[in-house]
Amino acid sequence: MDEILLKLVQNEVSKILSKKKMFLISGILIILIVLFAYGQNFQYKNSLKRYSKTTIESGTDSWKPIVKQQISDLKNRLSSQNTLSYSKNNITIQIDQYQYYLDNNINPLTPSAGKYAVTFMEQGIYMFLPLLIIILAGDSVSGEFSSKTIKILLTRAVPRWKVLLSKYLALLILFSIVILETLILSILISGFMFNSWGFSEPVATGFKSIGGKLDASNVIKLLEWQYIVLVYSLGWFVSCVVGTISFMVSVLVRNTATSIGVMMATLIGGSFLQLFLADWPAVKYFFVTNLNLPQYLTGSYQPISGMSLVFSTLVLLVWAVGALVVSFLVFTKQDVLV
């Protein structure tokens, strides 16, 4: 690798580190993971208490009556008139899935560090994690304009594309660290809280819904740790995409506050748009609508027909490549007038 580029990436990483942003992100992560783990533990114990009154079974199979109870709850919702027709589809699939768990003796309920890590990523991937990523990427270029340091950066014997590339690579490194940190913190914190690791528990994935019916023929049984790797890889991919788009915005607006504001508005606004997804299919090409990749793995997730793991991955990839192209074109051509 190019020696200068390597040093530039080093510079950029140390710039971000000396801004102490990683401490901020770690702090937010720890607080949220602790609260979330506590909440989950609390919820599990509550439901255990609730259901244990109606059943005499106990021991290692204590989860089974709960799942059965949940199936009957879901069936009630299915027959309710207030349930929308497209969510009925999802509920049917969920019921089939629970049935599959019962039949195959897979425990989906008892909290373990492995399950917790997956749930945390599933819940965080479309809003919380992107926000952390924006904290990192939002001022990458605009910060240099705000502080006017862009002048000393661009008056060196280094072509502009190399300066920008080094910033991008540094961000990719830090995104990876954030994902890794999320994984390690959520496993450690929840592991000590639940006192159960559960890495080798079986997980079933690859459910397919065909005509509103669950097709279990393609189900792949994984171990929990394999599933964690899968989900966190998707989390990494989503973070990189959101980070790349945030990077483009920070090239375009030249002001840190605006850059972060624009990205947050896009994320939150985008999740509003998701409401219209059923009636206005164009929304499915918007990147925010496609962030929830791990949900596809459960099989019971299809926001509207035509959306799949491959579809969403492709949409995100196109957005990221587009954002990179725009970033490089604008950055290498623009006049620096600060």
Binding site: E3, I4, K7, L8, Q10, N11, S14, K15, S18, K19, S147, K148, T149, K151, I152, T155, R156, A157, V158
Partner: peptide
């Protein structure tokens, strides 16, 4: 130096120089 010596405020003077020095062969 263009319009004022704008350097990285959150770093030491030495770190600033080391960083910029790394950009030249």
């Amino acid at each position: 130096i263009i319009e004022g010596p704008d350097l990285y405020n959150y770093m030491s003077g030495k770190d600033n120089l080391n960083m910029l020095a790394a950009m030249n062969k």
